Structures are given as structure tokens and as C-alpha cells.
Simulated scan of single mutants.
Amino acid sequence: MASFTQRMLGAAKLDVPTFEEVEADTGATAQALGVVVIVAIASGIGALAVGGIGLLIMTVLISILGWAVWAGLVWLIGTKLLPEAQTSSDWGEIARTTGFAQSPGVLLVLTAIPSLGGLIGLVVSIWMLVAMIVGVRQALDYTQTWRAVVVVLIGFVVNIVLHVLLGLGLAS
């Protein structure tokens, strides 16, 4: 079994066996939460100049809630609306793979770099979406990647709306 760091690196490298390992390891849900928290802190540090410590705390809380909701949405969409014949999954499998798929997000700390921050954020966000597609494909036992793309994109849109609504609610 790979270490926590090895799993994060494997997920960032889009390594299918890493996603299969975390999907199967029911004890890795806490590790997936750890990835979400680390990435949220990295993202919050990148945004400290804009919003201070309050934004950092809000980013962590919204990220944890967003991850849990996104995993639920992916599970619902992937197993009920767009399943393949062999699709079999539960929330935990999705939560673990989507949590580790956020691993490239540790680089969001670099968004604090003037002039480059926006580009870094865009590249890292795309990388995370691709990792999410790989993780979802494995967790839902899909043979067709397009299904994972659709599931992730639907979940992504709903998650963005949730982040915006929660951000607006917490900011007021």
C-alpha cells in the first residue's frame, strides 16, 4: 500500500492504479479529506492577499462541504442517470477518488505570485478536472471516458454554484 504522499503524487500523475487503490481502501476516506483540506489551505493561502484569514477559513469550510456534495452528485449521476452495465459504486469510493483527484491543487498556493497567479490557477484547475475524470471513471467502473467527463462536468457546474452561493452567504 502506498503512503499518503505517494497516493497524492500518483493521483496528480493521473495514475490509474493509484485511483483503483484509494477506491478500494475504505480506510482512505480520511486521507481523501486530508487532501481536500491541504488543497483548500493552499488555495486559501494563494488568496490571502485578497481576503485575509477570513477567506482562508471560508475556503477550507466550503471546500470540505463542496467535496462531500460533489461526491454525492457524482455518485447519483454516475450510478443512477449514466451507469454502464458494470457500474457499481458507493459514496465512499467516489469521495476517495475525487478527494485524491484534488492533489494537483496543492500548487494553488502559487496563485499568490503576481502576474502569474491567474495562469497557474487556470492550469491547476484544468489538471484537477482531468484527475477528477480519471478518478470518477475508475470509481464508477466506466469503460467509456465520455461518461466520466459528462458526470464530472455536471457535478462541476453544480459545485461552482454551491461555492458561489455559500461564499455569498458567508460573506454577508
Rank of each mutant, 00 (worst) to 15 (best):
Met1Pro: 11
Ala2Gln: 08
Ser3Met: 03
Thr5Asn: 03
Thr5Asp: 01
Gly10Phe: 05
Ala11Thr: 01
Ala12Lys: 07
Lys13Leu: 15
Asp15Glu: 13
Asp15Lys: 09
Val16Arg: 10
Val16Gly: 03
Phe19Ala: 05
Glu21Phe: 03
Val22Thr: 09
Ala24Tyr: 02
Thr26Phe: 05
Thr26Gly: 15
Thr26His: 08
Gly27Ser: 12
Ala28Pro: 07
Gln31Arg: 06
Gln31Asp: 13
Ala32Met: 04
Ala32Thr: 08
Val35Ser: 07
Ile38Cys: 08
Ala40Ile: 04
Ile41Ser: 02
Ala42Asn: 04
Ala42Gly: 02
Ala42Tyr: 05
Ser43Glu: 04
Ser43Pro: 00
Ile45His: 00
Ala49Thr: 12
Gly52Tyr: 00
Gly54Asp: 03
Leu55Lys: 12
Leu55Gly: 14
Ile57Glu: 02
Met58Leu: 08
Met58Asp: 02
Val60Phe: 03
Val60Leu: 02
Ile62His: 07
Ile62Ala: 04
Ser63Asp: 12
Gly66Val: 10
Trp67His: 01
Ala68His: 02
Val69Met: 04
Trp70Phe: 13
Trp70Met: 12
Ala71Trp: 11
Ala71Ile: 14
Gly72Tyr: 08
Val74Cys: 07
Leu76Glu: 03
Ile77Leu: 13
Gly78Cys: 01
Lys80Glu: 07
Lys80Tyr: 05
Lys80Met: 09
Pro83Gln: 07
Glu84Ala: 14
Thr87Phe: 11
Thr87Pro: 11
Thr87Lys: 03
Ser88Gln: 13
Ser89Ile: 13
Trp91Phe: 14
Trp91Ile: 13
Gly92Arg: 14
Ile94Asn: 02
Arg96His: 02
Thr98Ile: 12
Gly99Ile: 11
Gly99Leu: 03
Phe100Asp: 09
Phe100Val: 11
Ala101Met: 06
Ala101Gln: 00
Pro104Cys: 08
Gly105Thr: 06
Leu107Met: 06
Val109Gln: 10
Leu110Ser: 11
Ala112Asp: 10
Ile113Tyr: 07
Ile113Asp: 11
Pro114Gly: 02
Pro114Cys: 08
Ser115Asn: 14
Ser115Leu: 15
Ser115Lys: 15
Ser115Val: 15
Leu116Asn: 11
Gly118Asp: 07
Gly118Leu: 08
Leu119Phe: 13
Ile120Asn: 04
Gly121Asp: 11
Val124Thr: 12
Ile126Phe: 11
Trp127Pro: 14
Leu129Asn: 10
Leu129Asp: 02
Leu129Trp: 08
Val130Cys: 10
Ile133Leu: 02
Arg137Phe: 09
Gln138Arg: 15
Gln138Val: 15
Leu140Ile: 04
Leu140Pro: 06
Leu140Glu: 08
Asp141Gln: 14
Thr143Trp: 08
Thr143Pro: 05
Thr143Val: 12
Gln144Asp: 15
Thr145Pro: 01
Val149Met: 02
Val150Asn: 01
Val150Cys: 03
Val150Arg: 00
Val150Tyr: 04
Leu153Val: 15
Ile154Glu: 00
Phe156Ala: 11
Val158Gln: 04
Val158His: 04
Asn159Asp: 12
Ile160Glu: 06
Ile160Lys: 00
Ile160His: 00
Val161Lys: 00
Leu162Ile: 15
His163Asn: 12
His163Gln: 13
Val164Pro: 02
Leu166Phe: 09
Gly167Ala: 07
Gly169Ser: 13
Leu170Asn: 11
Ala171Thr: 15
Ser172Pro: 15
